[in-house]
Design a protein around this nucleic acid. Sequence first.
DNA 1: ATCCGGGACT
DNA 2: AGTCCCGGAT
Length: 389
Amino acid sequence: MPAAKKNTVAGSACFADTAAKITSRFASSLVMWQQVHGRHDLPWQQTRDPYRVWLSEIMLQQTQVSTVLNYYPRFLALFPDVQALAAASQDEVLSLWSGLGYYSRARNLHRCAQVVVQEYGGEFPAQMALLMELPGIGRSTAAAIAAFCFDERVSILDGNVKRVLTRTLGYGEDISTTAADRELWTLAQMLAPKPALVRKYQNASMTAMASYTQGLMDLGASLCQPRRAQCDLCPVAQVCRAHQSGTELAYPVKTRKVKRSVHSGYLLWLVSPLGVWLAPRPAKGIWGGLYSMPVFESVQQRTDVVYAMNAEQVTELPAFKHVLTHMDWMLQPAMVKLSRRQALNLPTVLQELQGNWFSLQEWPALGLPAPVRRLLEMAQAPQSDLFAP
DNA sequence: ATCCGGGACT
DNA sequence: AGTCCCGGAT
């Protein structure tokens, strides 16, 4: 057998061997640790209601627990069950989601609620495979719901868990590749609690699958952080290959470099006695479905509109940078003050955007992107002179 | 000021 | 592989 091929095969089998060797101790140690040291008091815990678990998991995608704590209770108060959420308008949902980011999550959440009500009679399906078919629920989120609510023996695999697993197994392959991703899913599944462990905890206040799933999350968030590993406190340090060689921080290996491009945007911030003029963004793309002041791609386009309105008071405000995954968006706001008469007779270009004037009482309740909300709040602050004559 | 981390969809 | 955001750490 050629040396290269032999290495590949041996290297590949190696991680599965390691996983098989440690799986019992890994899972049972993690479960025990979670029940003593893990988090138990988060508002979406101590429930097996799939609606509540689902809502929390969607909010927690790409978002820190501390941030979600500011949104989850309000959301649940207004939409206590999946029927209430399904019956809401998209505007209402986006308004409550405003500031959380990744707004496709909110649009999918809304659609998912409607599917659950219409296709499943308001009951979430009790299997990971069926959960995955719902809008906004991918493999990891489906596994989380299935494990927490239905004790299905499946593993989550989010960014935190990838870090925990690559360190535990000493998995040094580039996890950006699809091959590594496939392999990690297999390894994660191998490490999940076996039936014997599940049985052992079947009458406990927290089941093995729930504790294991929560334990993976808690470990990644507390002891096994990206730039800080507290292995002296870690329940699985004994079996952790990275810890054995003192190379915790070398994992995971990620090569893909997201080169961000730079784009400019020119905000037209119209104010008048009627309030501020905001228009819904296109359904897809950046800030999809949220309200914003119009954004032009060139300063010329904005100037043309300002000229068409015969505006006299134009104030250029300081530019700021809004960072997205794939681009740095340099946003340059210009505030234009219009009379009542001008406000009621906007040029065609703006009318086509389907915007509206929103009063000080109205705009705070809209679904607004974080930087837009910040701008509006800044203008409203007591010391601001933006609205002075 | 800049960097970093974090799932699903297309 | 590219597209979606924000807060917190550095």
